[in-house]
C-alpha cells in the first residue's frame, strides 16, 4: 500500500460517493483478492469466505460516505473485514475454522492432507503438504493471533497498517505477532523437524 495506491483509492472513493458506480468496480478489482484471502485464512472455508467477502464489500459501499481518509482505503477495508470475521466467528463458534477445514473438499482441505509427522524421513513433506499443515494449525490459533499473522506474514501489511486495521497500539501489534508466531511454531514443530 504505497502512497500512490492510497491516492488512487481516494480518488475512486470520491467518484463513488459522487454517484459513479463504475468507480466502485475499480475499487473492488483492486482489493477483492486481498480481502478474500484474508477472510479465507481467518475462517478457513472457501464458500463461507466468499459470503463474508461479499458482505464486507457491500457494507463498505454503504459506509463509503463516512470514509474520511484518515487511514488508507485498503486498511479501512481490512478493518471492516476483520470486524466482520470476528462477529461471524463469534456467531458460529470459534471452532468453525477447524471443523470447516475438515469438511473442505480436496481443493483447499489442509486437514484432509495432513501428513503423519512420525512418517519415515524418506517421505519428507513437500511444500504443498507443509502449507496444508500450516493452514490447519493456523485455524487453531485464536482469531486475534490468527489475524495479526495473516495481515503481517501473509498479506504483508506494515506494523502501522496492522495497528490501524485492528485499532491497536503499535507495541501491542509487535508483541501479539511475536506470541502468535511462537505459538504456531510450536504447533508445527514436529512437521518442521521431520
Amino acid at each position: 500500500m504505497n502512497s500512490g495506491g492510497r491516492d488512487v483509492d481516494r480518488e475512486l472513493v470520491d467518484l463513488v460517493v459522487a454517484g459513479d458506480r463504475d468507480a466502485f468496480t475499480s475499487l473492488l478489482q483492486r482489493h477483492q483478492r486481498r480481502i478474500l484471502n484474508f477472510i479465507y485464512r481467518m475462517v478457513g472455508e472457501r464458500g463461507f469466505a466468499e459470503d463474508l467477502t461479499q458482505e464486507v464489500f457491500l457494507k463498505a459501499y454503504e459506509a463509503l460516505p463516512r470514509f474520511r481518509g484518515e487511514a488508507a482505503f485498503g486498511t479501512w477495508l481490512f478493518r471492516i473485514a476483520h470486524n466482520h470475521c470476528l462477529n461471524a466467528l463469534r456467531r458460529k463458534g470459534r471452532e468453525i475454522a477447524v471443523t470447516a477445514l475438515a469438511k473442505e473438499p480436496s481443493n483447499g482441505n489442509p486437514l484432509a492432507q495432513l501428513p503423519d509427522p512420525s512418517a519415515p524421513v524418506d517421505e519428507r513433506m513437500e511444500q504443498r503438504e507443509l502449507h496444508a499443515v500450516v493452514q490447519a494449525k493456523l485455524a487453531e490459533l485464536t482469531p486475534e493471533h490468527r489475524a495479526v499473522l495473516v495481515l503481517r506474514d501473509i498479506q504483508g501489511l506494515s506494523y502501522d497498517e496492522i495497528a490501524s486495521a485492528l485499532n491497536l497500539e503499535g507495541g501491542t501489534v509487535r508483541s501479539r505477532i511475536h506470541r502468535a508466531r511462537m505459538e504456531l511454531k510450536e504447533k508445527i514443530r514436529n512437521y518442521l523437524e521431520a
Binding site: 472457501r46 502449507h131 508445527i188
Partner: peptide, 29 residues
C-alpha cells in the same frame, strides 16, 4: 524453526477470486 514458520506463512498460495463473487458484489451495489 521460527524463521521457517514465517517463511512458510509467507509462501502460502493465494486463492483466486471467482468471477461469480465479483458479479454478486456488483449486483448488490
Amino acid at each position: 524453526l521460527l524463521r521457517r514458520t514465517v517463511s512458510t506463512l509467507q509462501s502460502l498460495e493465494e486463492i483466486e477470486v471467482p468471477p461469480r463473487l465479483t458479479a454478486a458484489i456488483q449486483a448488490g451495489v
